Amino acid sequence: MARSSRKDEILQAALACISEVGVDATTIEMIRDRSGASIGSLYHHFGNKERILAALYMTGTAQYAELLEQGFAQADSAEACVKLLVTSYIDWVAANPEWARFVLHSRSRVEASEVGEQLREANQRHYGRIQQALAGYREQGLFKPMPVDCFASVIIGPTHDFARNWLAGRTRTPLADCRELFAQVAWDSVRAL
């Protein structure tokens, strides 16, 4: 297993602080104390709290994107690709609940920050990669006709909603137990009849 970098340690410390006291109450000093990093190291790697939050957000979403990339390399059908969008999301959220809570609740804050444009570009690349993976299947008529910008919401909407409720402790059923159900719902929602 690779040794974590100082940056990773700082991000993990920030996530732990945010999970305990919330984003607004988390301070640079708390992150410093938790990570064992010096103030100089914090400012060298990130500059300020908002950049730490942005890096935390971008790192979390990049982990999900990496799961998709690995899956797309092996997916061999329209059904497999659609189900992958759901199962990768569930797998990442179930394995990283604190990070997922942060991502779900911090998007607007990161979008409004100085790295907002970087986030928008990363999202465009991410959605572009999804569209690229699905384009051939769309051209073959394997999906119901619908606006391209609605497609992802139709696929991930029910899963996203349940994940939010699971993260908030409002469900009895574990998220991972719903993996196959939500993957099938997504496929049934978009496949051509």
Rank of each mutant, 00 (worst) to 15 (best):
S5L: 09
L142Y: 07
L15T: 07
D149I: 05
L56F: 02
R120M: 10
G22W: 04
D8G: 13
S38E: 07
R172I: 08
A37Q: 11
L53M: 12
I31T: 09
E66T: 14
D91C: 07
S113H: 09
V93A: 08
L11P: 10
T87S: 15
L56Q: 02
W166Y: 10
A94Y: 11
L134M: 15
V110N: 01
R32M: 14
A152E: 12
P145K: 15
S4E: 13
E98V: 01
S153R: 04
R120D: 06
Y137F: 14
S38W: 00
H105L: 14
T61Y: 04
E20F: 01
V86N: 05
G71Q: 06
I156S: 09
R164L: 11
A13R: 06
F182S: 08
A2M: 15
V190Q: 10
V82F: 01
T159N: 05
D177L: 12
R120W: 06
F46S: 07
R107C: 07
D188S: 13
A14V: 06
G22T: 06
Y43F: 09
A122P: 00
M146Y: 04
Q118W: 00
D177G: 09
A100K: 02
G169Y: 13
W99F: 11
M1L: 14
F162S: 00
G22F: 02
A14Y: 03
R191G: 02
Q124I: 07
I52L: 03
A112F: 02
I130R: 02
I90M: 04
V86S: 08
P158F: 06
F102R: 03
S41C: 04
I52Y: 01
A152R: 12
L67I: 03
G136D: 10
E114I: 01
S41I: 05
S4D: 14
D161H: 09
S153W: 03
V103L: 03
G141V: 02
R170H: 14
D76G: 15
R129T: 11
V185R: 14
F102D: 01
G169M: 09
A55K: 00
S41P: 00
A95K: 08
G157M: 05
V148M: 13
E117K: 04
H45G: 00
G22Y: 06
A168C: 06
M146W: 04
P145E: 15
V103M: 01
N96V: 00
L193A: 13
C150M: 15
M1P: 13
Y137A: 10
T171M: 12
S88T: 10
P147F: 11
V115D: 10
A54Q: 00
Q132S: 14
M1F: 12
Q63N: 02
N165M: 10
R120H: 12
E98T: 02
V110Y: 00
P147G: 00
Q184I: 02
T26S: 11
M58H: 06
E180F: 06
H105C: 09
A54D: 08
D24H: 06
L84S: 07
T171Q: 15
E29L: 12
R172D: 14
Y127N: 13
W92R: 02
T27L: 12
R125H: 13
L193N: 11
